[in-house]
Amino acid sequence: MLTKVHSGLDPAPGVWWKPAHKAEKVWVAIAFAWCMVLFAMMPLWHWKGGQNPSGIRRRVDPQAFYARTVEFATQYKVGEDRGIPIVAPPAGADVYLTGMTYQWYPILQLQAGAKYRLHMSSLDLNHGFSLYPLNVNFQVMPGYDYALEVTPTASGDFRIICNEFCGIGHHTMVGRVIVVDGTGKTLADNATAVIRDREAK
């Protein structure tokens, strides 16, 4: 039994709860099935996939987190670039990174293929961790320690772009992550190529 023909501007006459037609039923069924696929993909990726934003998360005092970062930087410092320590923790270590207006502290030097627990937090405002050129993004927030297990898959010279607005100097907030391979060398990629070009000049 069809509803009498009427438009969306007309009051619906009488009882409008009537069976839908075949085409509608089929589309709703297909759409529902697709929604279930969309839903299933997320738990599935937790189980089988390699990239999940889970981590270990806890509240932390911003000052205490920064103090822990400085302690960590002092412990594993191997060099310095533009006044910021380069820190090379051993494979499997807890690694600390603090965002503050307008700097990422410290510079991390990691080994390709090794697993680290990367703790991220902020000393002041919301910041955004965006690993260039891979495009890996996480929210970095004062008062929260976001600890993610990361395994760099290939060596290179990476940047951390801040992608959460943090004030007038937001666009100057860039940090650095170096990933070395088994021989201790960084391989050429987009970012290193730029630096080498400049050094060659």
């Binding site: 533009r82 910021i84 700097q103 955004g128 965006s130 260039y132 050129p133 891979l134 495009n135 940047r159 772009i161 801040c162 992608n163 959460e164 607005f165 937001h170 666009h171 100057t172 907030m173 860039v174 940090g175 650095r176 987009n190 970012a191 730029v194 630096i195 400049r198």
Partner: peptide, 24 residues
């Protein structure tokens, strides 16, 4: 954005930043 260009960002040439970034 697929290349990682941030939203709400004044200068993606990063001319005043400590480290250089050069997008694709």
């Amino acid at each position: 954005g697929s290349f990682g260009v941030p939203r709400r960002h004044w200068d993606i040439s990063f001319s005043q930043a400590l480290f250089d970034v050069q997008f694709n």
